[in-house]
Structure formats: structure tokens, C-alpha cells
Amino acid sequence: MNIFRLIGDLSHLAAIIILLLKIWKSRSCAGISGKSQILFAIVFTTRYLDLLTSFISLYNTCMKVIYIGCAYATVYLIYMKFRATYDGNHDSFRVEFLVVPVGGLAVLINHDFSFLEILWTFSIYLESVAILPQLFMISKTGEAETITTHYLFCLGLYRALYLFNWIWRFYFEGFFDMIAIVAGVVQTVLYCDFFYLYVTKDGKGYRFSI
């Protein structure tokens, strides 16, 4: 554990909680892509199956349980409790164009051809592109609420901090995981355009294009 990873994890947690609170407090999921949230729920589910097979630390276990719980709570709020406010017409990204190639890639390129390892690899690849339906939705409607931009900023910051974490771990522990690093770089790059707008527009709600 190093400072980049810790702050990265906390930033990730902040993003998840910001989104949950935004939906809960406003009683609305307008402007939020339910498809991205389903993808994140799939990401956490397929990655954290190792909860059942190995114990790493109390921190690790708690965070995994919280991430999974929040992901499903968010999906529940969007598709059940506040589904009347869900803007499905604008959430039109074809997720099969992500899930199918990513599934194929996970089978082809992985550390070990085993069930859990392929699911872990699938989750890493899928996470790197899971935000695309959300970015697509924002580009389609041309706007995002301020709180939604904070959510996206925290989510992008998390992966950017993980890149520093991997540099740290390479130098000080000789550890590197090429699959996680490449996917993490892809994921971070997808946020670059957003980061630029977020900083230059001071995080205000704005018209947005990608």
C-alpha cells in the first residue's frame, strides 16, 4: 500500500458515494447512464469473486464489499426506485459492442487460462471502457450537471492515481501487472478530454462534447 493507491481507492469510493447521494438526494437519475452503472456492477462482481477464495486484508475485503454493495444499490435506484427519471432514450450506447470484444480479449490475453483469472481479466478490460456509455450520453445531450462532473472527475482521478501507484510498485517492489497497466492507461486516456474541460470550466455544469 502506498499513498497513490490509498488516495486512488478513496477517490474511487468518493465517486461511487457522490453518485449514490446525488441520485438519492435529488430523487432522480437524470443524466446518469444506467448502462455504465450496470457495467460497473458487472466489473466488481467478476473481479471480486476472489472474496470467496482468498483473504488479502481487512481493508481489501471491506472495500470490495462496499464497492459491490454500492454498485448494486446504484443500479437498483436507476432501474427500480427512480426509473421514472431514467433517461433511457439518451442512454443508447450499444454495450454489446464493448462486452463481446472485451470478453474475447480476456479469453485470448490473460495471465492464466483459468475461470477466476479470465473473469478478473475481463473485469479489468471492461472497467477501462465502462464509462463510455456515460460519456456518450453526455455528448449526446450536450450537458452534464455539476455533481455529475465531480463524479466523473473522482472516477478518472482514481485510475490516474493507480498509474502512479504502478510506477511506485515497479520501482520499489519490482511488481508490475501488464494487463492492469495497459487497461489502466486506456481508461485514464478516455478521461483526458473530460479532465481538460473539468479544469478549464472550473467544474461547473457545462455544455460538453467528446
Partner: peptide, 10 residues
């Protein structure tokens, strides 16, 4: 070299 497939990151 034995690689241990225990992913300790979130």
C-alpha cells in the same frame, strides 16, 4: 518463476 495469481489491488 512462479506467479501467484492473487490480485491485491481493488
Amino acid at each position: 518463476r512462479e506467479f501467484i495469481y492473487q490480485h491485491d489491488e481493488l
